[in-house]
């Protein structure tokens, strides 16, 4: 407990409310007003309603009623929902684990002084420009056991048939590769932006200190691209966690519930089954997961804030 003295000091240090509206603060507040209003109206309010809906049962065509934590209890007693959460985590770890190293490598390559490499900066961004529903269908046709080129090539090479969307492991790999393929361009771009901003002198002095390639990477490149890496990982994490369209178009959550990530489950409950209460409860869980990851990244990477 702070002492009374400390508190009164803190109080006198705090500018009074009238101070807040003093002339020099008015302009920045006015400038921020449109964004803040937009977010309050169209994001904060629905966000609050998700919590409200999650505590109610809302059958179609009937008035809704308060049910307390019933929706959550129903979900967490389900093997299926626990599987959904695990599938999401697996999906996320897979996508990040696959896309970040490739993106880093690609960023290093396209920022290198090798002639012509810069052109690929643009070309490598193509996967990001394609709509997820389209790329998902492309991937689905590529792994078709009879007509898909990837499945056929593997069959020719190994003499075995690969049923990508039937075999649980292969199905998980397929959704991960698809999502990593989509995610890596933006990560690459962000990391490359960080790489270009590293002054050459730092490398030169590192070389003078006798640092080899790995040491240069470890002590110069990596720390100086940490901010970009943070932004990239954060963005992709959120996109991956809430991804419903990509996975749904590829597997619809199958086989069984193997690839039914939380986003897909939410999509089904909200737009196919119309279980508004359950959908809202899943939404709350998804929000909690996202916040958890944000906090985690802020702690681990310590970058955050973008100061």
């Amino acid at each position: 407990m702070p002492s009374t003295l400390e508190r009164s000091i803190a109080f006198t240090r705090r500018p009074g409310w009238s101070l807040y509206l003093r002339h020099r603060y008015r302009l920045p507040y006015l400038l921020l007003l449109p964004v803040v209003l937009l977010l309050l109206l169209f994001l904060a309010w629905p966000l609050a309603s998700v919590f409200y809906f999650s505590l109610r049962r809302t059958p179609l065509g009937e008035p809704s009623q308060f049910v307390g934590l019933d929706n959550f209890a129903l979900l967490f007693r389900e093997a299926r929902f626990l599987g959904n959460i695990l599938a999401s985590l697996q999906y996320l770890v897979g996508v990040l684990g696959l896309s970040v190293p490739v993106a880093y490598l690609a960023a290093v390559l396209i920022s290198s002084k090798v002639r012509g490499a810069g052109a690929f900066r643009t070309l490598f961004l193509l996967p990001w420009i394609i709509a997820p529903v389209v790329s998902a269908i492309l991937f689905r046709t590529m792994v078709d056991p009879y007509t898909g080129p990837v499945a056929r090539a593997l069959e020719t090479l190994t003499g075995r048939k690969y049923l990508f969307l039937v075999n649980p492991q292969l199905a998980v790999i397929t959704i991960i590769v698809h999502s990593a393929w989509r995610s890596f361009p933006l990560e690459m771009l962000l990391i490359a932006a960080g790489l270009t901003s590293i002054p050459q002198e730092l490398y030169d002095s590192a070389k003078v200190d006798g640092a080899g390639g790995w040491a240069q990477f470890r002590y110069v490149t990596l720390p100086l691209t940490k901010n970009q890496l943070f932004v990239a990982v954060l963005l992709i994490t959120i996109w991956t966690l809430q991804d419903a369209e990509g996975v749904y178009s590829l597997t619809q959550g199958g086989p069984g519930y193997t690839t039914e990530v939380v986003g897909v489950r939410l999509f089904k409950e909200a737009f196919i089954y119309f279980n508004v209460g359950i959908a809202a409860a899943i939404g709350v869980v998804l929000i909690a997961l996202s916040v958890l990851f944000m906090v985690f990244y802020l702690r681990v990477l310590g970058a955050g804030e973008g100061q």
């Binding site: 964004v35 803040v36 977010l39 169209f42 994001l43 904060a44 309010w45 629905p46 966000l47 309603s49 998700v50 409200y52 809906f53 954060l234 963005l235 959120i238 966690l241 809430q242 419903a244 986003g263 939410l266 999509f267 909200a270 508004v276 959908a279 809202a280 899943i282 939404g283 709350v284 998804l286 929000i287 996202s290 916040v291 944000m294 955050g304 804030e305 973008g306």
Partner: peptide
């Protein structure tokens, strides 16, 4: 910072109330 964090929350979660 909230400006940065809020929209990172999963859009699909707030779709129904929206």
């Amino acid at each position: 910072v909230l400006l940065l964090v809020l929209p990172l929350l999963p859009a699909i979660a707030v779709l129904v109330p929206l």
